[in-house]
Amino acid sequence: MFASKLVICTALLMLSGSVLSQTLLSLKDAKIGEEHPPPETTTTFTTTTTKQTTTTTTTTSKPPTPDTTTTTTTPKTTSTPAPTTSTTPAPVPTTTHAPQPYPEPSVGTWNATCILLKMAAQFNFTYETKDGNYSHGLLNVPSNATIGDHVCDTKTIQSIELIWGSNTSVESITLQFTKKNDTVVMSQILIHFTVPVDDYPDAKEGQTIQMLHNSTGDFKTPEKMSYHCTRAQKLNMTETVDSKKEIGWISVSQVQVEAFLSKQANGFSTVHDCDSSETSDVVPIAVGIALAGLILVVLISYLCARRRSNASGYMSF
């Protein structure tokens, strides 16, 4: 009994499945086939990029419709960009400038009532270094130096002092003039200063230098005339007040000076130029030599001519 029921149920199921299959086939041939036709041509496109790979499968029917395209996209491959390497520019090398020459002195003008002075002065000195050796330095007399002590109340010796620097380190130069036989000369130069460690760091600290120059003929000029000289003149300063073996010199240029001025004077008197005074001695000597030579030539010519005339006279006899 159970077996017969099982057979009947199976038969019914097979019959239902056959009917359902026929129904589906009919529907497929009628309408559904137009929407989903069987694939005839399959074309596969593979696109490869640096970031992702896409595979596209297209099913084409007659005629193909957009709805028959099936796209399969692979997951994107995320790539980490390479780190950017920053390039630091190389440092620009600094240029070391050669040490500049010591500046030239500037011209200053000073009036001490009895002495009127205009000049540019620079002196070379010898100083002691920290290691016990000696070296040379340069120092200018500033054009804005002020007048310190000055002597005007004597008739034979007058002087003018120029000072500069700080109150604790006063630097000075003193020029002394002497009048004798209506002629004025600069008879002495005295320099006193402390070696500036800012300019000369190798110098022994607190070193004071004094240099002295004695003369009997510098800046020589007639009385009531001003001495003038444009070119630089070097005056040796080999003596010192404390008798140390320090050697130096002072260079003076653009000089115009007049001592023993009268109280009514308001400027320089007639100029007595150093170059004109030097050439005045040379010109007379040159003229004298030329005249002596000319006289000698005339005398020799006369003696030669007289000797020839005497010889011809003897030949006539």
Score class of each variant (00 low, 15 high):
254 Q>I: 07
231 R>P: 02
78 T>G: 00
98 A>V: 14
157 I>L: 13
243 S>V: 14
59 T>R: 10
134 Y>Q: 14
78 T>M: 00
121 A>Y: 06
281 D>H: 09
123 F>C: 12
119 M>I: 10
292 A>H: 01
305 A>F: 01
263 K>E: 13
24 L>Y: 12
170 V>C: 06
182 D>E: 15
6 L>A: 15
33 G>W: 07
165 G>F: 07
182 D>I: 01
152 C>V: 11
55 T>N: 05
79 S>M: 04
238 T>S: 14
267 G>V: 10
173 I>E: 08
146 T>D: 13
47 T>E: 08
303 L>P: 00
266 N>S: 14
212 L>A: 05
249 W>Q: 14
189 I>C: 02
274 C>K: 04
102 Y>M: 07
233 Q>V: 05
257 V>K: 05
54 T>P: 00
149 D>T: 15
183 T>Y: 02
240 T>Y: 10
231 R>Y: 10
12 L>P: 02
218 D>C: 09
261 L>T: 09
12 L>T: 12
17 G>T: 14
144 N>R: 12
256 Q>F: 01
78 T>Y: 03
74 T>A: 02
57 T>I: 09
19 V>W: 02
224 K>R: 14
3 A>S: 10
260 F>L: 08
1 M>T: 15
183 T>M: 08
8 I>R: 14
257 V>E: 05
140 N>C: 10
266 N>Q: 14
130 K>Y: 05
44 T>K: 06
186 M>F: 01
21 S>K: 15
77 T>N: 01
117 L>R: 08
291 L>F: 11
80 T>S: 03
275 D>T: 08
43 T>K: 06
162 L>M: 13
245 K>R: 12
66 P>T: 05
285 I>M: 07
56 T>S: 03
183 T>S: 06
187 S>I: 09
62 K>A: 00
199 D>T: 07
102 Y>W: 13
167 N>C: 01
244 K>A: 15
209 I>K: 04
212 L>W: 10
46 T>Q: 02
114 C>K: 15
128 E>F: 06
186 M>D: 00
24 L>A: 06
93 P>K: 14
115 I>M: 09
229 C>K: 10
193 F>G: 03
69 T>V: 11
11 A>H: 03
134 Y>M: 11
162 L>C: 11
208 T>A: 03
191 I>T: 09
284 P>H: 08
7 V>R: 12
262 S>F: 03
179 K>E: 15
7 V>S: 07
48 T>H: 04
49 T>M: 01
105 P>N: 09
228 H>G: 03
148 G>L: 06
125 F>T: 10
60 T>W: 00
50 T>M: 02
71 T>A: 02
84 T>L: 04
296 L>G: 12
224 K>Y: 12
163 I>M: 13
289 I>W: 07
197 V>P: 03
22 Q>C: 08
